[in-house]
């Protein structure tokens, strides 16, 4: 326990030297707090349609209202929940699939590796957004559609990284040692190899959340999200098709995008820092 604490302490001391990484952590903490305690922070009911449509920002509605008289600030705070949950869920699935394929390909090698990496190469080349759009279009709009589509195309780049990490860990002496004790492939993979690349997986997982949030926003903007569960992307979809431009409703266009940018940027800063730190083996 104490050694764990020391590790964290040592990690934090290196981490806090990076201004962008600390900034990312602060932004993320603030945004997540607001999103988690949405009822506390949101001034109105996000479903109440009782205000005057297209009211510009003012003392009553800090960020104005939309075409059906919903307070945009409240709507946005609740929309953050959808964006974040979808982002984290989709990223989790992608990390799971990506790590597993990378682990098997890298550790088992041979024809397993050959086949898995061929598939990876192909999936990485196919234009991923159009592919997701095609899948989502058939499945029909919805949150799970987006998660599913992202899971299908999102894993290859992670797989490649994990695989190359595995290849370098594989030759390490402790792996040879456990092999000598007669441990099976699967056992070695999960008890020895995986713990050694967990840093890389965590760092990539954080980055993956950023990609997932951006993807969710993008697909939702194309009308593939769930109109009843508004995310930031869905809000912008409605802004686009319900005349925010013509009415000059900048307060409907700017804020949701800024939220997406801020949250994915904070994940990006944190992920980049983690990647560097784990890459330097400082995190261990």
């Amino acid at each position: 326990m104490r050694s764990e604490l020391r590790k964290i302490d040592r990690f934090w001391r290196v981490y806090k030297k990076r201004k962008s990484a600390v900034a990312g952590l602060i932004i993320l903490t603030v945004l997540v707090t607001i999103i988690v305690f949405a009822p506390v922070f949101s001034p109105y009911d996000p479903d109440a349609k009782d205000a005057i449509p297209f009211t510009p920002p003012g003392s009553e509605h800090l960020l104005g209202t939309n075409d059906i008289g919903v307070d945009i600030l409240s709507e946005m705070i609740y929309a953050g929940r959808v964006s974040l949950i979808v982002g984290i869920t989709a990223a989790g699935i992608v990390v799971f699939i990506g790590s597993l394929i990378g682990l098997f390909a890298g550790f088992l090698g041979g024809w397993v590796d050959e086949i898995l990496m061929r598939i990876t190469d192909i999936v990485i080349i196919l234009p991923r957004f159009p592919l997701m759009i095609v899948m989502a279009a058939y499945l029909g709009p919805g949150v799970w559609t987006i998660i599913f589509a992202y899971s299908i195309v999102g894993w290859p780049s992670l797989t490649r990284q994990i695989r190359s990490q595995i290849l370098s860990v594989k030759e390490a002496s402790f792996i040879e040692a456990s092999r000598a004790t007669g441990a099976g492939n699967i056992r070695i993979m999960f008890t020895h190899v995986l713990p050694n690349i967990q840093g890389i997986i965590i760092a990539n997982g954080v980055m993956e959340i950023m990609f997932a949030i951006l993807t969710e926003a993008g697909l939702s903007f194309l009308g593939l999200g769930d109109p009843t569960q508004k995310s930031w992307g869905v809000m912008l979809y409605f802004a686009q098709i319900q005349g925010a431009f013509l009415r000059g409703a900048w307060w409907w266009i700017f804020p949701p995008g800024i939220c997406i940018a801020l949250i994915s940027c904070s994940f990006n800063y944190i992920g980049t820092a983690l990647n560097d730190l784990f890459g330097l083996k400082l995190g261990k």
Binding site: S20, M210, L214, A217, G218, F221, G233, L236, A239, Q240, F245, W250, I253, F254, P256, G257, I260, A261, S264, C265, F267, N268, Y269, T272
Partner: peptide, 17 residues
Amino acid sequence: LFVFSTPLFWVAMVLLY
């Protein structure tokens, strides 16, 4: 890194607006 994290469609919307 910040630019990398902003959604493209939103950048387009802001430019258009």
